[in-house]
């Protein structure tokens, strides 16, 4: 499999701030790759490094095997969907989409036909004559997508493209983006702070924290077998058990993650816990518990009795639900 984008010990420092710190990364061709992390974790800087808007302080980025240090953004085989969409306000939708082709020297009739086809692909036919200011956020997002895809990039970079959309639209676009990526076979590099988005769309996910990659892997691996407490906590708000407690339970001293949905109430055995609160989430109810000073949360399926705050309960979990994280604090 060809490597589309490779980071080799790439750092980007702003004065004393290490936005990206010695990152190694390989994105395969045709892959839907998500960079996940909280704001300020370095994921967007990584995307900007691929696009060429930023230069690495150290290290090398290769795009399809070619070192990119001296390649300006306008010569890179990548296109970006910007967080604020960055549509040109003085051009109508068709000319926005055809911009890259116009720059490449394509004739007017030809590039307009290509732009209209791209608008059709993102389900926006009939909007070609409008100005971006006359579109809704979701429509702008589609135009921005068409404007990038019409150039047939080898890698499409998406910087939190769904961040400004409301929930329903976001879920719809997640499905469409995934379908589009399958259909076109283009490598997608997708930046998001929404773990649900990353897990549901990506083939592989890189979890970022403080300029470093905490873990790279398939969504199931990241979710079920987090390697660091940060990943366990950030991806799906897993319970992180302290080493002392894990030592008492298993005899091995390490952090461990425990999925809230794996925790269940039982009448005897297990651990004693005190209920500190409940939150109704629709299909499930989240119970917050206190186990000898360690906070823990459990998800109760609808229909189960919900204990009151202050109640004493006994909890247990399936044997394999407890996942030890030998890598420590990352």
């Amino acid at each position: 499999m060809t490597t589309a984008v490779a980071f080799r010990k790439v750092s980007r420092h702003y004065g004393p701030v290490r936005a990206v710190d010695a990152v190694n990364l390989e994105v395969a061709e045709g892959e839907f790759f998500a960079m996940l992390g909280p704001s300020g974790s370095g994921k967007t800087t990584c995307l900007r490094l691929i696009a060429g808007f930023e230069k690495p302080t150290a290290g090398e980025i290769e795009i399809f095997g070619k070192p990119s240090a001296t390649v300006p953004p306008y010569r890179r085989p990548v296109n970006t969907v910007f967080q604020d969409y960055a549509l040109f306000p003085h051009l109508n939708v068709r000319d926005n989409v055809a911009y890259g082709l116009m720059i490449a020297g394509m004739g007017k009739a030809e590039r307009h036909a290509a732009a209209d086809a791209a608008l059709e692909m993102v389900a926006m036919p009939g909007y070609a004559e409008r100005k971006p200011s006359a579109l809704s956020g979701g429509q702008r997002q589609r135009v921005a997508l068409a404007r990038a895809l019409v150039n047939k990039p080898k890698v499409l970079l998406l910087d939190e493209p769904l961040g400004a959309l409301d929930l329903k639209l976001r879920e719809q676009m997640q499905v469409e983006l995934k379908g589009l990526q399958r259909q076109l076979g283009i490598t997608f590099v997708f930046v998001t702070h929404d773990q649900g988005e990353a897990l549901s769309m990506a083939d592989r996910v890189a979890v970022f924290s403080e300029g470093r990659i905490q873990q790279v892997g398939r969504p199931e691996d990241i979710y079920d077998r987090p390697e660091t407490p940060f990943v366990a906590d950030f991806v799906g708000s897993s319970n992180v058990l302290p080493p002392e407690m894990v030592a008492r339970l298993t005899g091995r001293k390490a952090h461990a993650s425990l999925r809230p949905e794996a925790v269940h109430l039982q009448s005897e055995g297990g651990l004693e816990a005190r209920v500190t609160g409940q939150a109704f989430l629709g299909a499930v109810t989240r119970l917050t518990l206190d186990v000898a000073g360690t906070p823990l949360s459990a998800l109760l399926q609808k229909g189960q009795p919900v204990p009151a705050t202050g109640d004493s309960v006994r909890i247990g979990w399936d044997e394999d639900a407890l996942h030890l994280m030998e890598r420590g604090n990352g």
């Binding site: 306008y74 990548v78 910007f82 960055a86 040109f88 003085h90 911009y99 890259g100 720059i103």
Partner: peptide, 26 residues
């Protein structure tokens, strides 16, 4: 916005073309 100029470069425009097609009209 800066992203407007970056978008132009991202779509293949050299700085002179970005000036002519994006910056100057705006």
């Amino acid at each position: 916005p800066r992203s407007m100029l970056e978008a132009s470069g991202d779509l293949g425009a050299r700085p002179a073309q970005t000036f002519r097609h994006v910056l100057l009209p705006l």
